[in-house]
Nucleic acid binder design. Structure first.
Lengths: 125, 125
DNA sequence: TCAGGTACTTACCTCCTGGTAAGTACGGTG
DNA sequence: CACCGTACTTACCAGGAGGTAAGTACCTGA
C-alpha cells in the first residue's frame, strides 16, 4: 500500500528498531503519546504541526501493526478514537531517550534553529 | 548533490539525531568503525555486504561533515585512507546502544530473520 | 603490456516517501 | 437544509534516496 515492507531480515538491532521508527513523524507520535498518555486523532494532528492526515493515519496504522500503539474505537455519534502507547511503545520511547539527549547536545553544539512548537520559524535562514 | 540538506531547524533532539543517522548504512558504518577502531575504505565496503561504493562514500562524506568520523589520507603509492570515529561519533554510537538492544529484543519477539554477516540469506521467505 | 587493486567520481534511472486535495459517512447545530 | 466536525480513504504527483554501471588516476605484479 504505502510504507509497508521489511519486518526483517535485519542486519542488527538498530536496523530492526529503525524499521519501526523511520518515518517523518513516528518518533514525534511516540513522544506525543508518551507525554499525554492518550490522545484522540484530532489532538495528535494538532500536536504535530505540519503533519498531513494521510501520513498521520498511515504512521498510526503501521505503529499499531508493529505493536507500538493501542487503538481504541468508541462507536459514538461523532466518531471517537483514542490512541495510546503499548508496553513496547513505551519501552521504545525509553530506548530513544539517550538518542534524544545526544541530538539535543548536537543542537547546542552546532547552534541549529529549533523550530517552535507552533508554526513560525525563528531564523530566516 | 545527493543527501545533503537539513541540519536544522529541528523539532526535537530525536529529530536532530535522526538527521545524522538516517541513511541506509550510517548506523552500520558507526557500528563497524566502533568495533574495528579504524578501517580502510575497502575494508568497510567488505564489512557492509550490499553497499554500493557511491552510497558508502556519500555516507562517509556526510558523517565526516557532521563530525562523526575522522578521515585520514595517506599519500602513498596505492592510495590509502583510514576512517575512524570521532568523539561525537563514539558518543552517538553509545546513545544508539539502547535502541539496538530494543531492536534485538524485537527481533526475538517477532522471530524475524536475521541476515548473516556474509552474503547468504537464512530463510527463502 | 595489460590486468588488477587502491579510492574514488559521474551519469542515469527507479522506486519509495511524503505532500496535496478531494471524497466518504454520520449526526448535531444554526 | 446546508454546513461543521469527527475519523478516515483515495487518487494523483513531485522529490529525493539509493541502485547500477562506467570512468579516472596511479602504481604493482605477471
Amino acid at each position: 500500500m504505502a510504507t509497508r515492507a521489511r519486518r526483517g531480515p535485519y542486519i542488527c538491532g538498530i536496523d530492526a528498531a529503525m524499521d519501526v521508527v523511520s518515518g517523518k513523524w513516528k518518533s514525534l507520535i511516540l513522544w506525543e503519546l508518551h507525554h499525554h498518555g492518550t490522545r484522540r486523532f484530532a489532538e495528535l494532528r494538532r500536536g504535530l504541526p505540519g503533519v498531513s492526515e494521510k501520513m498521520l493515519i498511515q504512521h498510526l496504522r503501521e505503529m499499531e501493526e508493529d505493536g507500538l500503539v493501542h487503538r481504541e474505537v468508541y462507536r459514538e455519534v461523532p466518531p471517537k478514537v483514542e490512541y495510546s502507547l503499548t508496553e513496547h511503545g513505551a519501552s521504545l520511547n525509553a530506548a530513544l531517550a539517550p538518542l534524544g539527549e545526544w541530538g539535543a547536545d548536537r543542537i547546542r553544539r552546532i547552534g541549529a534553529d529549533r523550530v517552535p512548537v507552533n508554526g513560525a520559524v525563528t531564523a530566516p535562514r
